[in-house]
Write a protein that binds this DNA or RNA. Structure first.
Length: 542
RNA sequence: GCCCCGGUAGCUCAGCUGGAUAGAGCAACAGCCUUCUAAGCUGUGGGCCACAGGUUCGAAUCCUGUCCGGGGUACCA
């Protein structure tokens, strides 16, 4: 039963009967519970055209409303002209039956049925270990994928990497340099090389397995480095329970001719020109700020060209929805790719780009300074070595991606009540424990319960929160802002703990006990769904 | 210079597709365990929602400008 939709319709009918023109009706939940459960501002919005005072208009509308008394217990008008509705306890109580019957499917939709979505995230080049920023992106991307799956979308998690450009060449040179330094042939390390300790490890490994008489440009350096680093990346992601369905590399677009095809097609649209020995894309003619180089004077393409080929490839694979998760350092890169695709007549409305801001690590109350050059940056692996998966995932998802994230290592490490993850998990564990207790004490616990017994304010409040779950999940789909889930779960846990404190669940009153056990079972389903979408485990005991 | 993100309680942040009295956690202080897990609950204090204009019946939310912080502005990715 969707009360919101019901109220909209009912108000609509009332307006027609009063002779007002059709108008979009919005029904919202007021923040202040004194104003009931739902509230409508229609009288305020039409007051001007109707040339009447909003408050009188609201009264008029209220008078002609025909509402089902089983669902709405009270209608009131408050200044400046809101019409407020209070749902019956009965209506809320009925949610408990809904949840109990749908179990962990409660709140799921089929909005995405038959729709395919490609979610690209992490996409770090295999030149070194993942950093904490990648961690944020990894969790964000995986959670967004989970949200889509929840709504029935057919989701592919994708990882794209550049294995053809400058960076990989530098990687190869860095490993080769360490190799020759290890065997004493050279002493100089390249100025722009990767200095991390992992490069030395790879070099040592090559000496062990391939001897010490390799040539400087042997492909072994790159191959072993790429494989080793990729394995490391996958292990780190796997610790966070993140698994990509597809890995796509830049090279394949050269091999398939897709890169050339882009140039040809853009050329025929007159969007490619030569200047200063380089090949340019005329981004300005499709509304962007400046033209961009697609092929450098050295003959090497910039990342924009293969990226465009890659995104065209996503269109060619017939994805209905293409979601890119990028870090803030990429803000300037995608508009050109989108412009090129638009010029090639692709519907870029299908592409949704999610940009997340940076992550700062806080330790002992201070920012941890990180430098890739010095090689003393904190990697994602460092983080996962110290913290469990649930904590890492939660800390990365609990803030809006638009905000800078301060990752407080001390709070994350804290195994006490201060840690917000445990608050959620504790609610779940408490439920499990109570259910075990009920079973042990042979309490009656079946689905023939009387929900009208659940009338304590804490019970009604808890049920109201439960009833908002599907609305929240729908909103998260529209906005792709997963932090709303963690905010919601915090609220739900709070209401549960409050209820637990106020109401004895297993008691000598068998009817009430059964009803309350069903209520906490409903909470268990919703908590478990929410945690699962966030990729956080639901512990039976703590 | 230009572009993007942010500026909300002492700290970290929700709320931002306009609604009524701006929320949470942490920190501080005061309480609650012979009863299903106190990793919990209750209470107190704490705010010119950066600033200034504008739009509106109504602005933390939208628009403009200013200031502060972060990122970008490459023939790096």
């Amino acid at each position: 039963m969707n009360l919101k939709a019901y109220l909209s319709e009912t108000i609509d009918i009332a307006l027609v009967s009063l002779g007002f023109p059709k108008k979009l009706i919005t029904v919202e939940r007021p923040k202040n519970p004194d104003f009931g459960d739902y509230s409508c501002n229609i009288a305020l919005t039409i007051a001007k055209e109707a040339k009447q005072k909003p408050i009188q208009l609201a009264e008029k509308i209220k008078k002609v409303l025909i509402l089902n008394e089983d669902w709405v217990s009270q209608v009131s008008v408050t200044p400046p002209g809101f019409i407020n509705f209070t749902a019956t306890d009965n209506l809320y109580q009925s949610f408990v039956y809904d949840i109990i019957s749908q179990k962990i499917n409660y709140g799921k939709t089929e909005l995405g049925k038959g729709i395919s979505a490609n979610v690209e995230f992490v996409s770090a080049n295999p030149t070194g270990p993942l950093n904490v920023g990648h961690g944020r992106q990894a969790v964000l991307g995986d959670t967004i994928a989970n949200i889509l799956e929840w709504h029935g979308y057919d989701v592919k998690r994708e990882y794209y990497y550049n294995d053809a450009g400058r960076q990989m060449r530098i990687l190869s040179e860095s490993v080769a340099a360490r190799y020759f330094m290890e065997i004493g042939k050279i002493t100089e390390f390249p100025e722009d090389g990767y200095r991390g300790e992992y490069i030395r490890d790879i070099a040592k490994n090559i000496i062990e397995n391939h001897g010490n008489d390799l040539e400087k440009d042997d492909s072994i350096f790159l191959n072993v480095a790429e494989e080793t680093i990729f394995q490391d990346i996958k292990n780190t992601l796997s610790f966070l329970d993140i698994h990509h369905d597809t890995f796509i590399n830049e090279k394949s677009f050269y091999e398939s001719g897709a890169i050339e095809k882009i140039l040809e097609d853009l050329s025929s649209e007159n969007l490619i020109y030569e200047k200063d020995n380089a090949t340019w894309f005329k981004a300005t003619s499709v509304g962007n700020e400046q033209d961009r180089v697609f092929i450098k004077s050295s003959g090497e393409p910039t990342y924009r060209l293969p990226d465009t080929a890659y995104h065209r490839n996503k269109f060619e694979r017939k994805f209905d929805w293409i979601i890119d998760i990028f870090g803030a350092d990429h803000v300037d890169t995608f508009p050109d790719v989108l412009a090129a695709l638009k010029a090639l007549n692709y519907d870029i409305n299908k592409v949704k780009v999610c940009i997340h801001q940076f992550v700062t690590l806080i330790k002992d109350g201070e920012k941890v300074k990180m430098s890739t050059r010095r090689g003393d940056f904190v990697t994602l692996k460092d983080l996962t070595d110290q913290l469990n998966k649930d904590v890492v995932r939660y800390f990365f998802i609990m803030r809006s991606m638009n905000s800078h994230l301060n990752f407080d290592l001390d709070l994350a490490k804290d195994q006490s009540e201060k840690n917000p993850v445990f608050y959620l998990q504790y609610a779940y564990a408490r439920i499990c424990n109570t259910i075990r207790y009920a079973e042990k004490s042979k309490a009656i616990f079946n689905n023939k319960f009387d929900s009208s017994l659940l009338c304590h304010p804490s019970e009604i409040d808890l049920i109201k929160t439960l009833s908002q779950f599907s609305e929240m999940m729908k909103n998260v789909l529209d906005t792709l802002e997963p932090q709303n889930i963690s905010t919601y779960l915090q609220t739900l846990a709070t209401k549960y703990h409050k209820f637990y404190t106020d109401c004895r669940i297993v008691s000598s009153d068998h009817q009430l006990t059964n009803s309350r056990l069903n209520l906490i079972l409903a909470v268990k389903f919703v908590l478990s769904s929410g945690l699962r979408i966030l990729g956080i485990s639901s512990p039976e005991r703590m």
